[in-house]
Amino acid sequence: MEELRELYVGRTVEVIIQPLPPAYADYSLIHQVLVNLLLNAFKFTRQREDAAIEVACLEDKNEVTYYVRDNGVGFDAKYQEGLFGAFQQLHRSRQFGGTGVGLSIVKRIIERHSGRVWAEGKVDEGAAFFLRFQEEKVMKPTKEVSSLDN
């Protein structure tokens, strides 16, 4: 988050981070996911003076759904399908910058974790990106890691 703040010096963005339960995942890949999602959120709230980003989760029985929500320009729900495709940008790149690879990396990483990623949004009302990993029981720590713990 600090790295991101540095990237966007001079902007006032209210970032709310709710308590988050742990996940079973690859640290560096999941780091990449969060960076990409937050970058996205920063990027698309650029035109807002009261920009706000929330990182939180929904808990339901065994399942945890993490999400990153912003109050940026949002998107038209009918383009939802194309959102995670490589090099697909709904907004002109000149306007917001970026290459259109960010979300496809997110999707790729979450799918490698047998999880699911999806988005909800409305034009001018912001967007939310949801992540769900496979249940803990299925996603066991690999041996190398557990031996490190010992």
Partner: peptide
């Protein structure tokens, strides 16, 4: 290569 471990999501952000 993936190394699945318990990741503290709060710390990560």
């Amino acid at each position: 290569k993936m190394n699945i471990s318990r990741v503290d999501m709060g710390d990560l952000v």
